[in-house]
Amino acid sequence: MAERTPERLVRLLGMVAFLDRNPGVQVEQLAAHFGVTPEQVLRDVDTLWMSGTPGYWPDDLIDFDAGSLETGVIRLTQSRGMGHALRLGTREAVALIAALRALQEAVGPALDPQQRDVMASTLEALTAATGEAAAAVDVQLSVDAAPEVLVAVAAAVGEGRRLRLRYVNAADETSVREVDPWQLVTGDEHSYLQAWCHSARGERLFRLDRVLSAEVLGAGLEHPPGPVRPTFQPADAHERVRIELDGTARWVAEQLPVDEIEELPDGGFRVSLRVASSAWLRHLLLRLAPRVRDVEPPEVAEDAAAAARRALAAYEPGASSSVAGGGLPDGRD
């Protein structure tokens, strides 16, 4: 996909200012610093070389040392007054400061002193440079793990040591597992530990508030971290389920790992998902029941209904036959 104009412009201006401060930078190094390919760096240098003040005679243009460039080192010889870093816009400053504050608050206590210092000094530098901009937004991350769990998990992630977890899963089964911790995924609603699970022989996400206890073990990591993945990765092996919903259940389409959404003319829609856990699917259908128009395969809906029937019995002791009575609720909270 073509790069957007504003992004390229900010980088072009940034490169001139960076090279003005750092005489002689290797192409690869500059590329890594700005997160682009070496080819893109060379294209950017070509662009800069032809840019300058009106007239555009050689003395008007941004200039580089051509000989140096042949050896793969970019040396700026004329910045045309563009040697300063561009200030941050309000929203730009707000975005970074809010994120740093949230991280500091949520995971700060679990970091080692050196990491804590880096985070604090970065926040300080940024706040000093941007002033009051940051008062506009406040992000409160939810790391609702027990404090001792968070400390153990953070230490294990930081030191690359194996963890023993006592964990209760979405199907409400408690198990003890040993995992190779990869990273802490901190969110505004829940936080997770992404890890290699030795019991399951695969990558798993563990919700921190479901970790009942965590113990750092002596062993290092057998399975090092892989690339970052979304919170649920559907696999082809999982059961495929199709659910037709009315329009009020739109959040399902937005929040679930759906494969496919088909919009219907009346505002309803049909989603197709692959499901790894039948307990999870049952829970989903129980929550959505009044909005569900159809489910494929139908046994899935029958399974959820049977579970609901069992649960209702507890509310109407000795009168399980009365379950079918009562009007259809409207499903609103």
Binding site: L286, A289, D294, A301, A304, A305, G326, P329
Partner: peptide, 14 residues
């Protein structure tokens, strides 16, 4: 109410 709705869903769809 939610449980009844789930029972009703099962009846409706089966």
């Amino acid at each position: 109410r939610r449980l009844r709705a789930a029972v009703e869903m099962g009846e409706r769809l089966s």
